[in-house]
């Protein structure tokens, strides 16, 4: 058991160490910011030629979660593609993998700022937002919520490194980016912390580890185990 189960807005939820959110009530699996096709988009725009393997890598990790949980609905919380054209530029292997995963379940692509209207036909439905159990699922947090969103790619510092983390505030729940080629914004950044003040973070490492948000100063001088 590597997830972190918690109650939020009257719902039982589980944060997975993969960075996905599992909502057992309706067997919903929510992932944010897949950014599929990122390397292709950068190359298309005359930028760097990054190793073109991130889409396969992201879909492989998503496939592992599907195998483990068998969700009825998969919701991509926006920025599923690095831009609208990236959806049309996926290679045959990626399309085949996506088709296979979307078979026999509902698949919802929520629009993000990177992919407001993907140009290619994709398996599943496209929506601007989804309402589930009194909670709105959208790309960016809004107003008083309650909503579940992505967009910011939150990270926290833990054990000497930046780790992907979900941020759980009283009214807003912000998921980490699931995509392989994604960076992170520190949870202490005002652009992010203003949505989730007084909440907690769940760091996605080998386990989903809850910690207070924002993190207090690191502590030194812990007691040692004695020498045998």
């Amino acid at each position: 058991m590597t997830g972190f189960a918690f109650a939020w807005q009257g719902q039982s939820l589980q944060m997975r160490c993969s960075g996905a959110l599992w909502w057992p009530a309706g067997r919903w699996l929510v992932v944010a910011d897949l950014h599929l096709g990122k390397s292709e988009r950068m190359a298309r725009r005359g930028g760097a030629l990054l190793p073109p393997y991130e889409t396969a890598e992201t879909l492989r990790r998503l496939g592992d979660e599907l195998d483990a949980l068998d969700p009825a609905v998969v919701i991509s919380l926006g920025d599923g593609f690095d831009d609208d054209a990236a959806a049309g530029a996926l290679d045959a292997d990626a399309l085949c993998a996506l088709d296979g995963m979307a078979r026999a379940r509902d698949w919802i692509w929520v629009a993000g700022n990177h992919d407001p209207a993907p140009t290619a036909p994709l398996p599943g439905r496209m929506l601007d937002a989804v309402a589930l159990g009194g909670i709105t699922l959208r790309h960016e947090p809004q107003g008083d919520g309650p909503d579940i969103s992505g967009h910011y790619h939150p990270v926290v510092r833990l054990a000497g490194a930046r780790r992907r983390a979900a941020l759980i505030g009283p009214q807003h729940l912000i998921l980490p980016a699931f995509g392989r080629y994604t960076g992170g914004l520190d949870a202490a950044d005002p652009a992010l912390s203003r949505w989730v003040a007084g909440g907690i973070a769940v760091a996605c490492v080998h386990r989903a580890l809850p910690l207070p948000l924002p993190a207090p100063v690191r502590q030194r001088g812990r007691p040692l185990r004695p020498l045998p």
């Binding site: 189960a5 918690f6 109650a7 939020w8 039982s12 589980q14 833990l158 054990a159 759980i168 505030g169 009283p170 009214q171 007084g198 909440g199 907690i200 760091a203 580890l209 809850p210 910690l211 207070p212 993190a215 207090p216 690191r218 502590q219 812990r222």
Partner: peptide
């Protein structure tokens, strides 16, 4: 570290999956 921070902040976890109402 995560556990120490939770304790320092006065937050406690229980084994009951629904027992932690974070915010």
């Amino acid at each position: 570290e995560a556990e120490a921070m939770m304790q320092a902040a006065g937050l406690q976890l229980t084994d009951d999956p629904g027992g932690f109402d974070a915010p």
